[in-house]
Every structure is written in structure tokens, then in C-alpha cells.
Design a protein around this nucleic acid. Structure first.
Length: 823
DNA sequence: GAGTTTGAAACT
DNA sequence: CAGTTTCAAACTC
């Protein structure tokens, strides 16, 4: 492998939602996206360097070398000046060539952006290429997810991962696919609306206008790609990546791209944030707002720079038939300087849009390069197929730690007419050793732009590229450890049950609301990307960025899974790393491996007869593609999409809630306890084996259950009564006969108490053998034994008395059962 | 690893 | 809606 930054077996990724409460943002609030926090802006001389960089890049571009060409830009950006608009030569959109640029780090890792033919090159100032820069702490990526419908609110997700993550690790992150389905059918997705410019605030926020103004001439020599061309549908991809620098704040990168026949341009924006807190001030953004941001059709990259940022750009030659897109990279400033918006230097990134009708929904694939070659990241946008939204909520699933390999990852979209559920899935294949991610080394002193590529291949074509800018700092790594249970060796996937998503969209008619379950986020953290497609909407691209993260937050819980290699680990192991973040706590990154909504590690299925197209198959039932399963004749894959969609439709016809999470929260008493929405029907297992879905989910049976002989119940009395109380009770029982009688009475009362949870009404005597009853029975026996001892009764008599007492207890239990049943 | 048990899903 | 069959996971040996 050309890139091995892997310190990384232990690296973990974190995902945390940010700023969840802001539902809507006015246009004036869009500045929040940029996260600029200062008045400092780039001086004009920075643009000179931009120009130099540009020239250098173009020089490279002119050479048309696929690999090994690098542009090194050393520049510090710390200025107080506003960002001037920079006009660059803009390549005619008529040009059908597609440009691929790669960003390479010292390790020859490259990032390739494939864009539409129309490319704007933005001078990249503040982007410095410094080889051998090693982040010491942690990186974060922020992803903005917006509803498919284009309405409702968007969510900002924050993904943390160690800066030291190798390219492969980053790749893994990038490649991860998240399929989101909200209860109301919202899809995790970013969508833009045409053309609304955003103005920058005086404080140095990035304005779309400025970004647009910055243009660069497109390199003369570009390689055309023969890959799929997406249809003319508008496709937008948004990503916000943030990186924390040790002292300065977070960096955010917003990558937006739109694709349409009429809107060839794609935009990537990198924004820099200098705030000290590692959590960038994110806000929820309404879709319209998102659209506003995205409408610029340009890509802006604003990598933040610590004292120095270095970016290495290698261009790749790729040709495309699609239109050119514009990419603007704006480096931002270091620790001290507040967010700065600068016209991107010469770094040009091209997005490629594919229009192949047969193409799956738009997705980004990373293109893996040979070991010797720099890693390449390609961003391609393809049009999404028009799809019907399926009804119930979003489901976000992230296959757990799958290594990213260019091979067989899949992005999938399920279209159901009349329903609002969309399923998008990426399945990453185990990495083969080739790295798809481009990383730029960074050091404390100098921040570098990191990019992460995701490689996915659909059919014979690779698609999807992700780019993540990074920066570094002295911050310590934040690591998220997968659950121990999740870290099985099988390379299993982590699932986010639809429930998780559904939980976010409780009440669910809000189709537009975008909710990403914390669990989903956590899975993202584990290195998965979310792609969603909608006929009318664009894709969501998640780019993990490395950054240094301060471990300031006391909230954070670090999780480590001993067995799982880091998410970012490059190796083939695909063990899942999961960090589940409870939405309630997630805002500041409370991490836990708790599964709030039934998230569980995925197991490979073993289906033999169902073709994995029935709910028998866990993969299918969870809305996932089979990946690394043991199934036979599997049709739960992209290759059988039509069949799969028919199966989904069939399931939904039978049960509209078929793909909804089975585990929800109890409503009756407002309790916050998970419960099985449908309930189990166990007859022979006593609901104490994993046959029982309730037991398997580690939740007690509830009134929804129709089980017989249920023993998976919760005794409220037992719960409420402290151990101390029980001990006292036991002591009392031991000492006096009166206590014995009292206990007996208590036992009787308990026995008569109606079943706490079961609604079957057919409780049998053994149903009353709750832990409490057993304990009290034991206390009775102990009391009897002690009484016999005090009375100096011989052993034989003592045993007889104890047995008699036991019989009395049993009789009482049986009587209680009968009485309860009678009532 | 093979065979059995179990209960959800599918089918009638 | 109830009964039966199918299916795959859980479990046992």
C-alpha cells in the first residue's frame, strides 16, 4: 500500500450530531455553515499566492500526468482582509471533458475529484503542502444531511476519527454507506435548490457569491473518462467536514455539488472554523437553506490551516462526457485566525456526473490506485433514478466496518411507489490493499488538507469519491470504540435498525424532517458513508476528515473495542466498529456503545431458500444488502435490484410496517423503556431464550406480547425495592416467626398480584415464580431452618419442616395463579 | 458440524 | 383471522 498511516489498528471513529435544535435557519444564518468566527480575512497577497498555486497546478495539469504529479502549496493564511472575488478563467461548459484531480500527501495519496466538465478553479490559499505532516490528535468530519423531500430540516453530523488514520482507514470511513429511512420516509440526503446566493457576513463568513466569483481556468489537459454519465437530473451532494485544530477551533468543509443538465456546475466548499471548541457551531439547516447553499453549483474548498496547511495536489487524468463542475478550494486560517473565506487557490477539483440510465443512484466511489500510485478519490455524481418514496420513515443503516475496497461496494436505492421509504445502501467491500483515500499529512505546526476517498463500484464502474479536508492540532485523539459485541471477527456489518431512524422521526408524518439516529451516526463514525438518492434530490456524500480533537468534553465516553481494528484501519478486517450516540446526549458527543434503539451488530445471514428477499433474512429485513454473508442464491444485492424491489414491495403490501423497527419505546406511561412494537408469540421458550425477539433485544415482554408462559417480565416491586430493603427483609425473616408469617403473607400478596407485563391472561403458576417470589420463598425456607435450629430440632425434623414450608409456598403460588387467572 | 427446537414470516 | 407451512436462527449434542 502506498499509504500507511496506520497507527491505526486502534483508531476509532466518532460520530456525533451537532446543533440539533435549530430547525430553521434564515439566509442570514447560513453563515453558520461557514463557521467563520472571526473578522480576520485573507489579505490580498494571499491571492497572489493563490495565483501562483494556480499556475503551478495548471502547469501540472497541462502535463496531463495521471499520477505522481504533485503540487505543493505552502502558504499561511492569516489575514484580516475580506475575501476578494477572484475571477478565473472558466472553462466552457460545452467542454465535455471531465477532470480528475488528485490531492496527494507525502505518501502519494491522491484525491481525485471528478466533476462535471465545467470546472472552476479556485485559488487555494492557505493550503499548504507539507509532506510528512502527521496529525497528532483527532479529526472530525461533519456531514450535513437533509431530507430527501427537500423540505424539513437538515441535520449536521459530526464524525470524529483519529488524524492518524491511514488512508485506508479514512477510506473505510468514506466508503461506509448509510441507508437512512426515517419513519416518515425521509431520506438522508442533501439537496440543493437552484441558485440562491448566500452572502457573507461581515465577520468573514463565506459567501456563496464570493465563492462563485472565484474561478479558475481549467487545466488544458484532462483525461476523459468513459464512465457512466448520470442523467440530467439534478443531483446535489453536500458535505461538511470539520477538523479541529488543537488550539484553534474546528474546521469545516462543506462540499456541495449539484448536477443537472442545466446546472452542470458542482461546488465544493471547505470552510474553516477557528473556534476553540472542537464542536463546530453547527445548526440545523432547512432544506431550502441547504438548497440555497448548494445552489451555487460550485465547489468550494476552504481548508483551514493551522500555522500551516499543506496540500498536495496531484491531478489525475480522466475524461468524462459530462459537464464540468466547479471546485473551489479555500484554505482557511490557523488557530488564531478566525474563519476565513478565501477563494481557493489553484487547486481544482472536478466532479464528474454520470448520466447512465442504468446507473444506480448517485454515489461516490473512490478509485483505488495501485499501491505505488497515489491514492485517488473520485467524486462523481450521477443522476438518481426517479424513485418513489416508500412510506415509513427513514432507515439508516450503516454496514459496520467494512473495509473499503474499490470492488463491490454498492449503493442502492429502493423505489416503492406510493411509499415514502427510500433505501440507499452502500456496501463496501473488504479492501484489497489498494487505498482509495488520499490523505495529506499534517503536523501540529502545519495543517494539511486531507481527503478521503470512497471507492465503490457498481457494476463495472467505479463511482463516488469523497474528499475530506483536514487539519491538525495538538489535540488528542478521540477514539470511538465499537462495542465488544460488535467486534466480531467476521467483518460483520453494523446495522442501524429503521427504528433508530424512526425514533428520530416520531410521529412521523413529518416527511421532510431529517433525522439521523444517533446510532446511525455512530455507524457513520465507523467509517460508513451515507448515500441517499431521490428522484428529485441529490446524493449525500459523507466525507470523513481527519482532525485533531480536543478531549475537552467531559461528556465523551471513549469506547474501545479490543478486538476490532479501528474503523480506519486499512486492513482487510471488516469488523464493525460502532459508536452509538444517543440523540439526547449526542450534542456534545456523548458516546456510548449502548444501543438506544435496538441497534445491533449485524450477522451474516445463512439464507438458503429465501434468496434473501424475504423477511426471514435479517439483512433484507433490515434493509441492507447482503454483504459477506453465507447465503445461497442471494438476490439481496444490486445485481438483482428489480427483484429486490419487488420483494420489498411485496413485504410492504403484506405489512406496511415490515421495515419499521420492531423495537420502539413504550408509550403507555410515558416510560422511556424500549419495547417490542409487535410483541412476541413465544410458547415454549418462556421468552428466556433468543428465540424470543423481546429477550433477544434485552427487553421485557410487554402488553403487546402474546406469549405463553412468559418469564421475561419485569417485576416492578423487585425493581423498586432496593437490595438493602431486601436484605433487611431477609434479616427480619430470619429472626422471628412473625417475620416468617409476614413474608408468607407477602408472598401470597405477590402471588395474587396480576401479571406485571403479560397481557395474555393465561398466566400459569410458574409465571408467578418471579425472582421476588423465589427470593421470598427462600427467605421463608431460611427462616424455617433457623427456627428449627433455635428449637434444637434434629436434622431430620429440620429438613422435614423446611420441605413442608417449601410445599406450603408452592401451594400458595399455585393458588395465587388460579386466583389471578380467575380474575 | 449435524440435528433439533423455536418462533417469525409466509402462506392458505 | 386462524391454522398451517416455510424458513432461518438459536440451540443442543
Amino acid at each position: 500500500m502506498s499509504t500507511n498511516n496506520n497507527k491505526g489498528q486502534n483508531t476509532r471513529a466518532l460520530v456525533e450530531p451537532l446543533a440539533l435544535d435549530s430547525r430553521t435557519l434564515g439566509d442570514s444564518d447560513l453563515s453558520a455553515l461557514s463557521l467563520s468566527h472571526g473578522n480576520e480575512q485573507y489579505p490580498s497577497n494571499d491571492f497572489e499566492e493563490f495565483a501562483n498555486i494556480q499556475a503551478e497546478l495548471e502547469c501540472i495539469n497541462s502535463e496531463g500526468v495521471m499520477t505522481d504529479e504533485r503540487i505543493v502549496i505552502d502558504e499561511n493564511v492569516e489575514t484580516d482582509t475580506t475575501v476578494p472575488d477572484v475571477e478565473m478563467a472558466e472553462i466552457s461548459e460545452q467542454v465535455q471533458t471531465e477532470h480528475v484531480y488528485t490531492l496527494a500527501n507525502p505518501n502519494n495519496q491522491n484525491i481525485v475529484f471528478q466533476t462535471k466538465p465545467t470546472v472552476q478553479r479556485v485559488p487555494v490559499s492557505a493550503v499548504q503542502v507539507k509532506p510528512n505532516i502527521c496529525p497528532t490528535t483527532q479529526s472530525q468530519s461533519i456531514m450535513i444531511v437533509s431530507p430527501v423531500s427537500g423540505q424539513g430540516t437538515s441535520q449536521i453530523l459530526k464524525i470524529s476519527h483519529p488524524p492518524s488514520a491511514s488512508a485506508e482507514q479514512l477510506q473505510s470511513l468514506a466508503q461506509t454507506l448509510i441507508t437512512g429511512k426515517s419513519a416518515d420516509g425521509s431520506v438522508v440526503q442533501l439537496r440543493t435548490q437552484p441558485a440562491k446566493s448566500v452572502t457573507t457576513s461581515a465577520s468573514g463568513n463565506i459567501t456563496i457569491n464570493n465563492m462563485q466569483n472565484v474561478k479558475f481556468s481549467q487545466p488544458a489537459t484532462l483525461k476523459r473518462t468513459t464512465q457512466n454519465v448520470s442523467q440530467g437530473r439534478n443531483v446535489y451532494t453536500k458535505m461538511i467536514l470539520t477538523g479541529n485544530q488543537s488550539q484553534s477551533g474546528t474546521q469545516q468543509v462543506l462540499i456541495t455539488s449539484s448536477q443537472s443538465e442545466n446546472q452542470p456546475a458542482q461546488g465544493i466548499k471547505f470552510l474553516n472554523n477557528t473556534s476553540s471548541s472542537y464542536v463546530s457551531p453547527t445548526k440545523n439547516i432547512t432544506l431550502a437553506q441547504m438548497g440555497t447553499i448548494l445552489s451555487t453549483n460550485k465547489q468550494h474548498i476552504l481548508p483551514t490551516s493551522s500555522p500551516k496547511q499543506s496540500v498536495i495536489l496531484n491531478k489525475l487524468l480522466q475524461s468524462s462526457t459530462s459537464q464540468q463542475s466547479k471546485v473551489t478550494i479555500i484554505p482557511t486560517n490557523t488557530v488564531k485566525s478566525p474563519t476565513k473565506i478565501l477563494p481557493a487557490p489553484t487547486l481544482s477539483i472536478q466532479a464528474k456526473s454520470s448520466t447512465t440510465a442504468n446507473q444506480p443512484p448517485t454515489f461516490i466511489t473512490a478509485k483505488s490506485s495501485t499501491q505505488q500510485n497515489p491514492q485517488k478519490v473520485i467524486i462523481r455524481q450521477g443522476s438518481l433514478k426517479p424513485s418513489n418514496v416508500l412510506g415509513s420513515g427513514q432507515v439508516i443503516r450503516i454496514p459496520a466496518n467494512q473495509n473499503i475496497v474499490t470492488g463491490s461496494n454498492q449503493v442502492h436505492q429502493i423505489q416503492m411507489s406510493g411509499r415514502q421509504v427510500q433505501y440507499v445502501r452502500l456496501v463496501s467491500t473488504p479492501s484489497t490493499g489498494s487505498t482509495n483515500v488520499v490523505t495529506v499529512g499534517k503536523t501540529k505546526a502545519s495543517a494539511t488538507l486531507q481527503t478521503v476517498g470512497i471507492g465503490q463500484k457498481i457494476g463495472n464502474q467505479q463511482q463516488i469519491v469523497k474528499v475530506v479536508p483536514l487539519n491538525t492540532g495538538n489535540q488528542s485523539l478521540r477514539t470511538v470504540a465499537p462495542k465488544a459485541t460488535l467486534t466480531t471477527s467476521g467483518g460483520q456489518k453494523l446495522l442501524i435498525p429503521a427504528a433508530a431512524a424512526a425514533a428520530a422521526a416520531v410521529g412521523g408524518q413529518s416527511k421532510n424532517a431529517v433525522a439521523i439516529p444517533a446510532s446511525a451516526l455512530s455507524q457513520l463514525a465507523s467509517g460508513q458513508a451515507v448515500l441517499s438518492t431521490n428522484p428529485n434530490v441529490g446524493n449525500i456524500v459523507v466525507l470523513p476528515a481527519q482532525y485533531i480533537q480536543q478531549q475537552q468534553s467531559t461528556d465523551e465516553v471513549k469506547l474501545k473495542s479490543p478486538t476490532t481494528p479501528g474503523l480506519l484501519s486499512s486492513s482487510q478486517s471488516s469488523t464493525a466498529t460502532l459508536c452509538v450516540i444517543d440523540g439526547k446526549n449526542s450534542q456534545r458527543g456523548v458516546y456510548s456503545n449502548v444501543e438506544p434503539n435496538g441497534i445491533r451488530p449485524r450477522k451474516p445471514c445463512n439464507c438458503t431458500k429465501s434468496q434473501c428477499l424475504k423477511l426471514y433474512c435479517d439483512c433484507f429485513a433490515n434493509g441492507e444488502f447482503c454483504h459477506m454473508c453465507n447465503c445461497n442464491n442471494c438476490s439481496n444485492n444490486l445485481g438483482n435490484e428489480e427483484e429486490r424491489q419487488r420483494a420489498i414491495k411485496s413485504c410492504l403490501e403484506r405489512n406496511p410496517n415490515a421495515f419499521r423497527p420492531k423495537i420502539g419505546k413504550g408509550r403507555e406511561t410515558g416510560e422511556d423503556i424500549r419495547r417490542h412494537n409487535k410483541g412476541c408469540n413465544c410458547k415454549r421458550s418462556g421468552c428466556l431464550k433468543n428465540y424470543c425477539e423481546c429477550y433477544e433485544a434485552k427487553i421485557p415482554c410487554s402488553g403487546n406480547c402474546k406469549c405463553i408462559g412468559c418469564r421475561n417480565i419485569v417485576d416492578p416491586i423487585l425493581q423498586k425495592k432496593s437490595l438493602k430493603d431486601l436484605a433487611e427483609t431477609a434479616e427480619t425473616v430470619k429472626t422471628t416467626k412473625l417475620s416468617l408469617n409476614k413474608t408468607q403473607l407477602q408472598l401470597s400478596e405477590m402471588a395474587f398480584r396480576p401479571p406485571a407485563t403479560s397481557n395474555t391472561g393465561t398466566r400459569q403458576p410458574f409465571n408467578f415464580l418471579t425472582e421476588k417470589v423465589v427470593e421470598i420463598t427462600c427467605q421463608c425456607l431460611m427462616a424455617q431452618a433457623e427456627e428449627a435450629e433455635r428449637n434444637m430440632v434434629d436434622d431430620e425434623t429440620s429438613q422435614r419442616l423446611i420441605i413442608e414450608e417449601f410445599g406450603r409456598c408452592l401451594k400458595e403460588i399455585i393458588q395465587s395463579a388460579h386466583k389471578a387467572e380467575a380474575t
